[in-house]
Design a protein around this nucleic acid. Sequence first.
DNA 1: ACCGCCGGGTGCC
DNA 2: ACCGCCGGGTGCC
Length: 806
Amino acid sequence: MFSSRWRFGLDRYSEVDLFTDRYEADVETLSQAIRAAASEEPDADGSVLFGHLKGTVVGLRYYTGVVNQGEMVGLVRQPENPYDRNAVMVANIYGNQVGHIKRELAAAMAHVMDNNLAKVEGVVHSGTKNTFTMPVMLSFWGKEENKNAVIEGMARRGYKLNTGGSSATVVIPFFFQLKNAFDNLFDGLMESKDGEKEASVGTPLLPHQKQALSWMCARENKSVLPPFWEKRGELYYNSLTCFSAKEIPERIRGGILADDMGLGKTLTTIALILTNFHNGKPLPVETFVSVAVCECHQLEQHVRANVKLNVYLYYGSERNRSKAFLSSQDVVITTYNVLSADSGNKSPLHGINWLRVVLDEGHVVRNPNAQMSKAVLGLKAQRRWILSGTPIQNSVKDLWMLLAFLRLKPFDVREWWNRVIQRPVTQGDRAGLQNLQTLVKCITLRRTKSSKVNGRPLVSLPEKAVCVEQVELSQTEREEYELARNEGKNTIRKYVTEGTVLRNYADVLAILMRLRQHCCHPDLLAKTSSDLGKTSTPAELRERLIDKLRLVLASGSDEECSVCLESVHLPVITHCAHVYCRPCIAQVINTEQETARCPLCRSEIKANELVEFPQEEMEEEKSTNSDKWRTSSKVQALMGNLLRLRCEDSSIKYLVVSQFTRFLSILEAPLREHGFSFVRLDGTMSQKKRTQVIQEFQSSAADSPAIMLLSLKAGGVGLNLTAASHVFLMDPAWNPATEEQCIDRCHRLGQTRKVVVTKFIVKDSVEENMVKIQRQKQDLVEKAFGSSNTERKTSRIDDIKALMEL
DNA sequence: ACCGCCGGGTGCC
DNA sequence: ACCGCCGGGTGCC
């Protein structure tokens, strides 16, 4: 549904041409209103087509909005219309009113629209026959469960939906069937015919950065029609929406620089700021230019190092909120949080007309409902840029926010984005995907580390060697391991025979977990509860569930929520021991009420039976049992390596990586004992502490730490640990990509030494099997994206069987 | 003539 | 609107 603001906006300003984005207060208010309404447009996901209906648009002579043959129109309810509270307004893509739906039909549609039973869309096929009315083809979309209500509701009022023909439309609720296509969406966007532009930046630009700079300058300066627009005689015509206009469509001054991380996007952007002020002339000193929204302030470092620029860091409680002051700066840097906190109440950042707004790590804003996104969309600027190595995190949906920020019309209004791109693409429409590709191609430059310019790789990284070191368990360790393995094998075999692996998924993971812990260090098992099954008191049940939750979360399996298919956020565990995001499972329960069942095993679930991780346990988790310290074969293997290497070259720095933070704690003792200086980085640390630790480790000072104990998944992709050139992976991960990402933290731009990776794998153990599976994993992951959720889980079961040699 | 028919006025919601 | 609808004028053929 559109908000009242949208309706208000269109009633009052229906004559305003939204297309030319003049900076007049009214226009700005209106486009803001439309954008606000746009973000409330519900997702098209899961919508099915109920049917078509031919209707009439009347009152054309009272309005200026024009529509061409084949053009899509929007239908907007006007409950406040003084002549008819059932009124349905018809508007073209630019929000200009075209007319109204004929009264009787509007009454029927109002019922359907107001009760949220269907979304109605219109296409004008035949064009205007006369100056008074015209036919419109209406299509009704909505949730399957509302289909009959809509068809009957319309029929009762004498309108029979034409449902024939397209009943074969299959809507697949998730989008991963096209995941591969999305992954490739940003591939091959590297041709840049704009040459290489020199820039007077302190740091010399690499050839690919000069290319990017030329491309960015061209996008800011050159007059090119936006995607899908062509000139037809006197008119400009949009081939996707069939809209045509007399005025030249406003071009997008900006785009998405989607180079891989480490290729110097930030540096290139600084070069752009310096070299392309007005009319392709360099920036004269002392002139305001840009606002950049950053996550890491990397920008500041470059700028400071390179040129004399007025740079203001706009954050902290003492920040200068004067518009005049901010306008006098060359660059203003702020964070998404500050921007979001400021927006609304007389935000100076929102009051200034910026020459350029740059979103660093732009993928951070992708949820259109988030405050942060609204704050970003509200910025006024002539030129707009998004820097992101990973513009699509999960699905096509992520792109909307980016296009909306760039104001790529008409897609900055969600309805048109949904109709023209998102729905066709999610429903597997090839043309839709192709349109999306064209769209992205027009505004994006992306190169990967492996891309080549003139036959040469973009960046030459030092060599990387990966070796696996087999670890033999001691006799005692082996005996304990075999005991646990046989016990677990019997349990899992039982589940497989019964076909209840999914129902007992947490147990299975727990068994595997224990075996993996055995491979690292016996003390890792200390907190694991032993007996499973037998239910006793509610308190004991709860305790056991929390135990399982802890195991699942700590298992490093990158457990995903089966509802949203993303990493679990705010994890809760059901009584049947399956882990979901709290909001996801709460929605399932809310929708299905008493009949709610676990999406994985179909056991009954209730809202009050969801168990979450107690806060005090989170704290407790950090402290380890201070029992007497003992060693393990794997600890010995690591220490052997470290001592030998220290003799060979004392200048090497090391990353010691484990999925078990408690294993990292165990390692601290022998490191101290042998006089190794080390720091530690794990997910529990505050942002401030992390920065401090990273700086310490990256320092080249003689007394700087030689080792970083690193938890496998700590830190984002931007984490730069190039001081290290040797990586010890203490235990294998389920997902080889996780290991790769971790290695890439030191094997990246800025690394000067050869990188050596040592993976410790316990011989004849579940770890060896994990490595075997890893080899096929890449393939499996790709297949899984092309299959259903159940198939993915089934392949997981096969993994488990292989791991346990069943 | 409590109808039919004719032709002018008129027109979104 | 070269329509439909409304309501006033009109009334055998």
